[in-house]
Structure formats: structure tokens, C-alpha cells
Design a protein around this nucleic acid. Structure first.
Lengths: 202, 202
DNA sequence: ACCCCATGTTTCCAGTGGAAATATAACTGA
DNA sequence: TCAGTTATATTTCCACTGGAAACATGGGGT
């Protein structure tokens, strides 16, 4: 029987690995990437700063796991947009791309971490798989976006990479502050307005 | 007369500000962004780690100055490509974009720093001006790239931002390792192969 | 019942950026 | 010429970081 009524903190956390990732995301959202230290994350979970070592390969490993969860949510963002979109090809295309950009602008620090070579290990299998899932959503809407109708074996892949480059570049530039309000309208341009009209592919 | 023949190190450096920026770029190229510490830069110049304080606002200020120099070189890269390009619109377009991507792949750490909100102050006037010069090169080749031929006041701006998003996204994804060798050819796709053919604008 | 080992803690260390006080020398004007 | 001022650089100190190493804890398998 414990000597007092106060709930005794168990020595072993039980689900520390997941708890650390979630705590990391919270810190990221509220304080940014610079504040995402091993000590800060561990403290939020109520654990010593060396405890993560048992589950991740140092700070870089933990950050990689956080980025992995980021890709999962990123794909979900786009899929959610697709789920409420009109069925037309163009509408689905816009929905997915808007989802891509909206994720970046609503979770800027997480999005940056996801593409930060400095902070993540891009050869991590889990990260690669999560990123692949995210890419698959984009690839899905570009299946008939092959503007040159060539029969080259990489034509499909070129369409996907073109789309990905455009939306990713736009999101990145927007986060960096390079998409200012237009002088003529007072409102920044959107990814939809930027996209060339590939309607002739329909 | 100095008491000995050995060259006496002057107490004042003379051109410390520029020397720090150049030393920083060297460290960046050889060791990456993580190694770009105040102490490492100062040591390379042969100065104490607090000396930069007199010329820059802390590490962030120095990194911002390095990024500024990066934009200058970035613009020069593209202009150099343009200078040896064929005079056709399409050739000039490809030359500038290839210059953009080539700078990113040959100076990956510097390029990343230039767009890293975490490490630079994007409201710095000098940085903004340098970035504007770089943008101006891209804007120059997209002057007739208005695919929709609309008369909206932001049509030109939309063409520029579309082009910038595409090339910047491609460069960023390439640096992150997401532009792999194609299964069909064994060679990664290039920005030229990705670009839709806007020839109908000629 | 025992022991192994996965999981956390404590302690220590080298390294970081920055603040504050101090040293040096260049410039300024009488 | 020579002080006084100012720009530049140093020294010292501090809080913080990630990681290594030794140790503590207790759950789970035999």
C-alpha cells in the first residue's frame, strides 16, 4: 500500500515513444522549431532529457519521428479536402493543392521540419513511407495531367513532379513571406490562381 | 619600429564585416549549416566570438548577411546562364531556370539558408533588396508567359509567381532528395523536362 | 523465485550564443 | 601635439544544449 493518497508516478511511462512525438508537435506549434529541444520535449512529458535515447536516435531521431507524423497529417489534410470536393477533375485537383498549401500555412513549423534536411534523416524508412503516402495523393490527381501526351515512359512521372514542384514551391515561398498582398487587389494570390489551366487535358 | 620581424597582428581587423561573411560562406560550403556557429566563423577570421556583435545583430544577423550575399550570387548565376543562352524566348527561359536549380544543387547549404525563416530575418532591408534582384531575373523571363492572356492587373504577377513556385519547388525537392533517378532512364528528371511547354505564348 | 534487460535517472562534459565589463587604438578637434 | 571621444575587439561569465556513462527500477520470461 502506498504511504500516501497522492497518485504515485510510475517509473515506466508506458507509451513514452508516442507521447514524446505528440509533445514535440505541441511545442512546434506553439514555440517553433528552435524551441524543439530534447530537454523541452522530455520536460513536457515529465521525463528526464535522456529518456528519449531509449526510443529514438538522439534529437535528430526524435525530430524525424515528428516529421513522419507530420506527413501522415499532411496526407490526411489533402484527403479531407478531396473528400468534400466536387467530383470533377479540376475540382479535385484544386482541392488537393489547396489542402497542401493550407497544411503548410496552418502548421508552418511542422511543415518546415518535414522538408528540413538539417533536422531530419531522410533515409529513415518510416519517414520515407509516410512521405510516399503524401506524394501518392498528389500523384492521384495528376494521373491525367500529362500535358504533352507523349508516350515516353516517364511522362506520368513528369506530370506528378511538375505538380508537386509547383504546389510545394508556392507553399514554401508563402511561408517565407514572399507571397505578398497584390497591389491591385490587396489580397495575396492563391495556389488556384497561380495554377495554369490544364483543362485541355480533360 | 616593431620589436621583431614577425608581422604583428593588428588589434583592429579593418574589414571584419566582409571577412566574417566570406568566412561564413566557406564554412557553409564545407561543413554545412549546423557548423555555422558564431565561434567557428570568428575563429576562422582569427577573432573572438563576440567580435561580430559590433557589426551584426548576433548570430541571426550574421546569417542574414550571409544569405544576402547568397542572393547576390544566386542572381549572378542566373544572369550568367542567360548571357550564354540562345536569344530565343524558350532558350532564355530554360537558361535562367537551369541556373536557379544549378545554384541550389552546387551550393545547397547556402541556398537553404537563403530561404530559412528559422535562421534569417526576412525583414532585413538588405536581404529583401538582394532577394528582389534575384526575383527580377525570373520576372524578366516570364514577361510574356501569361498563359491565360487575361487583362487582369495581376496577370503578369501570376505568371511570375507560377514560374518561381515551380522552379523553387523543384530545387527544394531535389535538395531534399525527392528527385530520384527514373526507373526507365536511370537518370533524374531535370527542370527543363518538368516544365510545361508554354510555346503557344510565342 | 529468480534473474535478465528494457526503460528511466543522475551526473558530468564540451560546446553554444549572449551580456557585461574591460582593453585597445583610431579618429576628432583644439 | 595632445587630450577626449568613439569604434572595435577581448575577457569573463552565465544559462542552456545534446550526448556519454554509470546507475536505478521494476516488468516479464524461464
Amino acid at each position: 500500500m502506498t504511504p500516501s493518497d497522492q497518485p504515485k508516478k510510475p517509473y515506466h511511462h508506458g507509451a513514452l515513444k508516442q507521447a514524446l512525438v505528440l509533445a514535440g508537435i505541441e511545442i512546434l506549434e506553439s514555440e517553433g522549431l528552435a524551441a524543439l529541444s530534447l530537454r523541452a520535449i522530455a520536460a513536457r512529458v515529465g521525463v528526464s532529457h535522456t529518456a528519449p535515447k531509449n526510443h529514438f536516435d538522439g534529437l535528430r531521431g526524435l525530430r524525424t519521428a515528428i516529421a513522419t507524423e507530420g506527413f501522415v497529417r499532411h496526407a490526411a489534410f489533402m484527403r479531407e479536402g478531396l473528400s468534400i470536393s466536387a467530383p470533377s477533375r479540376k475540382a479535385r485537383q484544386e482541392a488537393a493543392m489547396q489542402g497542401y498549401v493550407r497544411f503548410a500555412t496552418t502548421h508552418p513549423h511542422l511543415f518546415r521540419l518535414m522538408f528540413s534536411t538539417e533536422d531530419c534523416s531522410f533515409d529513415d524508412p518510416a519517414l520515407l513511407e509516410a512521405a510516399r503516402q503524401s506524394y501518392a495523393v498528389l500523384a492521384g490527381i495528376s494521373e491525367r495531367l500529362d500535358w504533352d501526351k507523349s508516350s515516353a515512359p516517364d511522362a506520368q512521372r513528369r506530370a506528378e513532379l511538375m505538380l508537386w514542384s509547383m504546389v510545394h514551391g508556392f507553399a514554401t515561398l508563402a511561408l517565407a513571406g514572399y507571397v505578398w498582398p497584390e497591389a491591385s487587389t490587396g489580397v495575396p494570390l492563391t495556389i488556384t490562381q497561380i495554377m495554369p489551366d490544364f483543362g485541355y487535358l480533360e
